[in-house]
Design a protein around this nucleic acid. Structure first.
Lengths: 329, 329
DNA sequence: TTGAAAGCGCTACCAA
DNA sequence: TTGGTAGCGCTTTCAA
């Protein structure tokens, strides 16, 4: 391992001078700079981040806490974050929390122990004490509170759009899947749909679904078509659940979208790969990650930020589980 | 920020003693230990990993380099790694390389700068100089060479199984998709299939596919059924490509699996969610990640490891894009 | 424009 | 069984 000392010796200057050229701080004569840079080259030196971090009491690391990277909504988010963070010269320490508060706490404390300069967390518990007395900025992502810097998609509007689109495309007897009570954005979508539905003149019913697991969703799907055989439109709590509904509908011989229309939520990558491809409300996951990273790095750099709560637009992705809108006239 | 000094003062002992109880090294009287632990409690102290890392010249971090976490094969891998690494008390710094050597080099050097104790890398270039003179253990994952510690699935056998299964299930005119030349495991599968096919008495043809992109795969799928309309079996280079083939087959009105059987490779989570669900050769991604993490931590701890090259078994996942085997007799 | 030296928080040696 | 202290590699004052 080659240190700043070695470079100083090689260049015939003091470590202070080497540090100056490394950090481009203070005065250093052009000739000296060249000597130092030359020595750095020769020795193939790169500074030890750990020593730097110890002295400055801050690293170039940020902590990223996601519920579960195998949930297909998160890879794009993570990628958006990592790309932007990387662009800004930071690196990410990553952990899966499984929405477990104890695990969250563990990770946060190791983040702190490693001098991370900021944290991005997709948690259901932004108000938990885990996050209270941190001396570093935290940005909440997706599952979010309004009291802290956060980036999230507009679930209320998303839910509303889903309902409006499915009605406009002809469903008259709609089943709405509620989604897990403890997942805030799921509840917002649900409320959005519910409201639109209640303002309309279609029949509808609600099925309470308590997780996003595909296996469980299969059961609810069976239940759905047994209990409400006249359903001609389903608004699912997310794309995984929508996929299960689609399977079940196909299995029992329903024509999609002629007999039943289905709308999901999220637009995870596989939704467009289904057959028929799933119509859904898209959350711009990659961009959300990028925005969160940009917000965090601004906060880290103590730059002034006008808006600490970024609400992202959602869009209806028209694919093959919904019918075409009839042209007017 | 509370330091070891504060704890020492609070407990009325020296920092050396505090360090001893922290690390459970050397002698320390039971009463003293209690005093110290009490002080730690009171001050809610947790040691600074950075200072520790600086002194010991090693952190509790490992570096993880994946081509792209949004490629659906990798989240499960990543999760397997992270779970095991976490269990062993380490954390992971994560980066996407996009299979770009420059980016790989960047990440590796920041890993080193942060004193990581080991690296897990899924790279096409394990023999690249990036990895040569590292003083820390590296485990290669998935895309791998035999000269270094590595964990990979048996592509040769996988390819063979795919061919054998599709033949056994009745395909007589098989199209084999080759997969990107620069991706080693893809070529091994291809070779495995090719060999089995050439030893059999079925007709077959090869289409050269140069990436795993879904969009490109759509084009090849069109080409496939135009050029070889009599194809009654397709062995795809991975599940993404198989999905594209499935779409195209369905689109032009083929019955699956009656007219055409399709077999993929990987068993990414969405494959079982397709309709019809995709038959494929499964790579045990989660377990591969776990094995890689276990291998790495052993190497890090300088434990003796018999086998540094772990070949994982692949299995045929029979789903709905292949026919049932007829019972004998 | 440069160098000497203190100190970031911790571990481990040596002496008591 | 405990404490003093050097030193990990770096940055930053202060003095020259």
């Amino acid at each position: 391992m080659t240190t700043i000392r070695d470079v100083a010796k090689e260049a015939g200057v003091s470590v202070a001078t080497v540090s100056r050229v490394l950090n481009e701080t203070g005065y250093v004569h052009e000739d000296t700079r060249k000597k130092v840079q030359n020595a750095i080259q020769i020795l193939n030196y790169s500074p030890n981040e750990v020593a730097r971090s110890l002295y400055k009491r801050e690293s170039r690391l940020i902590g990223l806490l996601l519920p579960d990277i195998t949930n297909p909504f998160f890879p794009l988010l993570a990628r958006g974050i990592e790309d932007e963070i990387h662009r800004q010269g930071f690196r990410v320490i990553f952990g899966n929390s499984d929405e477990d508060l104890q695990k969250e706490m563990d990770y946060i404390s190791t983040f702190i122990q490693n001098n991370v300069v900021g944290i991005i967390s997709a948690t259901n518990n932004p108000d938990n004490s885990n996050y209270q007395n941190l001396e570093i900025p935290v940005v909440f992502l997706d599952r979010t509170s309004n009291n802290y810097p956060s980036v999230y998609a507009d679930g209320k509007i998303g839910g509303r759009i889903a309902a409006e689109e499915i009605i406009q495309r002809g469903s008259r007897n709609i089943t709405l899947l509620k989604g897990p009570t403890h997942v805030r954005p799921a509840q917002e979508r649900f409320q959005g749909s519910l409201q639109a539905l209640s303002e309309s003149d279609v029949d509808f019913q609600v099925i309470n679904t308590s997780s996003f697991s595909f296996e469980e969703a299969k059961k609810w799907s069976k239940e759905l078509f047994q209990k409400y055989p006249d359903t001609d439109g389903v608004i699912a709590s997310n794309d995984i659940v929508a996929t299960a509904v689609l399977h079940e509908a196909l299995r029992i011989g329903k024509k999609i979208p002629d007999d039943v229309q289905i709308i999901g939520f999220d637009d995870i990558p596989q939704s467009s790969l289904l057959f028929p491809a799933l119509s859904t409300i898209k959350q711009p996951a990659y961009d959300m990650g990028m925005e969160a990273a940009m917000l965090l790095t601004k906060l880290v750099r103590k730059q002034h930020v006008e808006i600490k709560t970024i609400k992202m637009d959602v869009t209806f992705m028209e694919r093959q589980t919904t019918r075409k809108v009839k042209a007017h006239g």
